[in-house]
């Protein structure tokens, strides 16, 4: 008879693991940068807050939900941008969105000057902040513009951990990334489940059915269908290591947004008249790749 230990390796790993999901945006930015190199820009005491929320009787946050910090990753100059999912659902308003766009712009300018600056974006976002609606749309377009320009110089890595997930305008930002890192808890989707159900009905999408929702946009599904490059358990150090590994790998052989031939081939070969499941897609794409 064999002896089964009460604490399996997995349980031991769990008990010593530090959660990334439970970290707030500032702690995430600190986690991603080499120890002792963190320098925050437009931090809480600069008090650059949303000018639009107080006009609507909504409490502001001193960093508008976006932490930008410079430092080093694996010894190389880097900027980290972390969205705070707990403040207004990680929504993109004028100030937080502009902080993101500026961080990318200044990183691009550094790269153009020969200072190789890498960038990581840690996302938790429900999309555009409806209280700043069109300002959000404009700023998000500026974020994309700078992401597309910056990723020519350096890999641009997006981390999506949860619990909020990454939706709306920021899901497209994830689409623009050189690499995407996700946890199993994370979700990545253009339209939120509730919005799809509202627009298209329960036959199309059941927002309250969590296993169903994750089967569509959860980290495991996104990794299996190559919308994410790395799938992780919720482990802060694992996130840091994965980011370092991706930077060591350098630029991807092909950016995802350049894979139009592949996706057009896939679209042509599918039958869109029937409803699809996550499993259907995994099988179809596996078969198509052979």
């Amino acid at each position: 008879m064999t002896f089964t230990p009460i604490l399996s390796d997995e349980v031991v790993a769990l008990s010593t693991r530090r959660s990334y999901i439970e970290l707030n945006a500032r702690a995430r930015a600190q986690q991603l940068l080499d120890q002792g190199t963190y320098r925050e820009l437009l931090g809480p005491f600069d008090r650059v807050e949303s000018p639009w929320l107080p006009m609507q009787g909504i409490v502001t946050q001193s960093d508008d939900g976006c932490v930008v910090a410079k430092g080093k990753i694996d010894g190389q100059p880097a900027v980290v941008i972390a969205m705070e999912g707990k403040f207004q659902g990680g929504s993109i308003g004028e100030v937080c969105g502009m902080k993101m766009a500026e961080a990318f712009r200044l990183a691009r300018l550094d790269n153009e000057k020969g200072i190789p600056t890498r960038a990581v974006l840690s996302l938790e976002s429900g999309g555009v902040r409806l209280q700043e609606a069109n300002m959000g749309e404009l700023v998000i377009a500026e974020i994309y513009s700078e992401m597309v320009a910056l990723r020519k110089h350096t890999p641009l890595i997006v981390v999506i951990a949860g619990p909020t997930g990454c939706f709306g305008g920021m899901s497209l930002a994830a689409g623009l990334a050189s690499y995407v890192v996700m946890t199993r808890q994370a979700r990545l989707s253009m339209n939120g489940p509730e919005v799809i159900e509202l627009e298209a009905g329960k036959d199309e999408f059941v927002a309250s059915d969590k296993p169903f929702v994750w089967s569509v946009n959860g980290g495991a599904q996104r990794f299996a269908t190559d919308f994410a490059d790395v799938l992780l358990e919720d482990d802060a150090n694992a996130v840091t290591e994965a980011v370092k590994d991706l930077f060591r790998k350098g630029q991807p052989a092909q950016l995802r947004t350049d894979k139009y031939d592949l996706f057009i081939k896939r679209l042509k070969s599918m039958d869109p008249s029937k409803q699809w499941t996550g499993e259907d897609i995994r099988n179809a794409w596996k078969a198509g790749a052979k």
Partner: peptide, 18 residues
């Protein structure tokens, strides 16, 4: 001395101390 803690999330608060 300067300190910053918390998040303006549901049931929570942010404090800036100077």
């Amino acid at each position: 001395r300067r300190a910053h803690v918390g998040v303006v999330g549901s049931g929570d608060l942010e404090i800036l101390m100077e």
